[in-house]
Design a binder for these strands. Structure first.
Lengths: 234, 234
DNA sequence: GTCAGAAAAATTGCATACAATGATAGAACC
DNA sequence: GGTTCTATCATTGTATGCAATTTTTCTGAC
């Protein structure tokens, strides 16, 4: 008989890692949330050991802040980190585009096309929209067959989701879907430079569209600051 | 009182990770070597738990091959992985160069210059030569203040060392030192494109110079294959 | 009411212990 | 002699337990 479904794809350690990662990216755990090892372990039915390992790994991936002896929290990347992250993404995804341009196989084109359709269908659901948009980029990376490239793009896309969740405007990812389709067209046609430019523009517009603090994500200090100013205080 | 020197820079878990990483990169542990958890733990004076965590982490970084329930070995990257890895490096280090060009501060220039001098001094010692050459690239990355970029370049440089150790010709890194100095000059002068081109050429020449199997690293099958061909067999 | 200090609780870091999986060696059989 | 089955051993994967550190709560003074 097969192993338990929850173990799919590796040991339980990896399962815990995936579960937490998924929870963070789905914003079920919002940035800044505390992540106590034993309550997580209890909830997931594993020991603290495995949760600890998963948290360490997530902190290496930048999804979790881990301060020694003081516990883990869901990461709250700064705007500066966000901008740097998108710069790195751009460098890597340019390589993805260059690698793939004119070399996509029919079934790959099929899969990408289907995914874009799914993105269009999910345009209203904000959270899944972000997820699907990210998955498009990881799909592209996957097709390069370059393991380090795949890993890094995956990580950066995941962190990007976190950043978009933190700083993104409500409807910032809507326009991106058409850009995905345009990009795919250029890739199929083998127009490498145009595709690369499109990818650069795509990521740049995500950055500039999103990387401005949205109103309701301001912290208490910021909120009070404006009231204080209005009253001539502090 | 300060902590024990061996703990410097984080918990013991990280100390174990650094120790193993260093041992691998120094080729004290050669590619393919078995890495049993308890003997390592005994030797380092820590429990298997920490060794296990370090090995998992190293496997994520590509320095260790970890097969479930079958133990860890020092990674033996394939030539294909090596080529892909250098492609990824090129994409990222181009970003490093673009970020740094014309913006190096005097003390940074000083540090880089001193490092290049050290490389020249160590030209005879093959192992340290590889290490110093790598450190030059990680120093550059560090100066970008882009944390994801730093992390990925660090990782790729480390893996590159492994690959050079496996496939590099005995004296393949000698010429690279002068290229480092040329690159620094272009960076200081702010000639971004020239610097980027130089970096590309630098990495490319490392690749083509090194990524051909050296004679004594061929495995039995390969060795026999050439004999078989010479005799008109198989 | 607030502030400082101390005791208690909660939480992490690590080691040890146990269970499960794979490797190895020996015996039985062909 | 070689092959297969089995029993033993070695090694990993995970849980539990203990010590250390941090946070919280309680107490008492001002």
């Amino acid at each position: 008989m097969a192993k338990k479904a929850s173990d799919a794809g590796g040991g339980r350690a990896q399962a815990v890692h995936r579960a937490l990662k998924r929870a963070i990216l789905d914003q079920a755990l919002s940035p800044g949330s505390k992540l106590p090892e034993d309550s997580i372990g209890e909830r997931l039915g594993v020991s603290r050991t495995l949760v600890h390992q998963a948290l360490v790994r997530l902190s290496e991936e930048g999804l979790v802040d881990l301060r020694p002896n003081r516990g883990a929290t869901v990461a709250r990347p700064t705007l500066e980190e966000g901008r740097n992250l998108f710069l790195t993404r751009m460098a890597l995804e340019r390589l993805v585009v260059e690698t793939l341009s004119g070399k996509l196989k029919p079934e790959q084109i099929e899969a990408l096309s289907a995914h874009i359709a799914a993105e269009e269908a999910a345009r209203t659901a904000h959270a899944t929209s972000i997820r699907l948009a990210g998955e498009f980029h990881t799909m592209l990376a996957q097709m390069t067959d370059n393991t380090s490239l795949i890993r890094y793009v995956d990580e950066l896309v995941a962190r990007s989701s976190l950043i978009l969740a933190l700083y993104g405007r409500p409807h910032s990812s809507e326009c991106a879907v058409s850009e995905h389709r345009d990009l795919l067209d250029k890739l199929i046609a083998g127009k490498t430079e145009e595709a690369a430019a499109l990818m650069a523009h795509h990521l740049d517009s995500i950055t500039t569209r999103a990387l401005l603090p949205k109103e309701d994500s301001m912290n208490i200090k910021d909120v009070l600051a404006s009231y204080a100013a209005a009253e001539g205080l502090a």
